[in-house]
């Protein structure tokens, strides 16, 4: 690659910079979600038994399904970049569409889950929730804040990947200029990692 023309070299420098910028943004996200996980850890340390009881209200099957869905979407996302780099645009668009679709399915599952809790009267500041013990109130508050913020990240990801899909279709993302897609992929995988931790901490502690 080094012996290529100067333009290629300049492009490669930009490429590295763009990717490093994305990683730095992800580090801020690590601290953002990290602080919420810290809050969770401190309260769980204090209200261990109540957290375990509250977690039984969550649907392990839906949680596991959503884990598999996000992992699969990540696999499609990673593959779409490899395909663009090989010039296989049609297949890459297919993989990006699959990622978007799985992201939407994830959100639908989340909607169903939240719907069930809300129908049981458990939602922020609800009378039924406020009558519960302190540990349970904190568990559900953290559950809504953390899965809500994560869901928001998934929603943003769905919109951004829709953008990269259009860019790929118009060849603005192509085999020599694919950093937009790659950075979108980095974001999507990060969102996946957040869920990898959310899943056991909320669903599997019964």
């Amino acid at each position: 690659m080094n012996e290529s023309a100067e333009t290629t070299v300049r492009h490669r420098i930009d490429y590295t910079g763009a990717k490093m910028g994305m990683w730095i943004f992800l580090f801020t996200e690590v601290l953002f979600f990290g602080s919420l996980f810290l809050l969770y850890s401190v309260f769980r340390d204090k209200y261990t038994a109540e957290f375990h009881k509250a977690a039984t209200e969550l649907d392990i099957v839906l949680g596991t399904a959503n884990t598999a869905i996000l992992l699969t979407s990540s696999m499609f996302m990673a593959t779409s970049i490899t395909l663009v780099r090989k010039g296989k645009y049609g297949l890459s668009i297919f993989c990006q569409a699959a990622t978007i679709l799985l992201g939407i399915v994830f959100l639908i599952n989340k909607y169903i889950e939240w719907g069930v809790h809300i129908s049981h009267g458990i939602y922020p500041n609800s009378p039924a929730l406020l009558e519960m013990s302190r540990g349970k109130i904190i568990f559900f508050s953290l559950y809504y804040v953390m899965t809500g913020l994560h869901g928001l990240h998934v929603l943003i990801g769905v919109f951004v990947i829709s953008g990269t899909l259009l860019f790929t279709a118009r060849r603005k993302i192509n085999e020599t200029d694919f950093v937009k897609l790659e950075n979108t992929g980095l974001y999507w995988h990060f969102v996946d990692i957040v869920w990898i931790y959310l899943f056991p901490l909320f669903y599997l502690i019964t």
């Binding site: 696999m75 995988h189 996946d192 990692i193 990898i196 931790y197 056991p200």
Partner: peptide, 18 residues
């Protein structure tokens, strides 16, 4: 155990997907 497994998964995602 669950944090250990989650970290293994995260490491796989970071190493290969990212």
């Amino acid at each position: 155990a669950s944090i250990f497994i989650a970290t293994a998964k995260a490491a796989l995602v970071v190493t290969f997907f990212m």
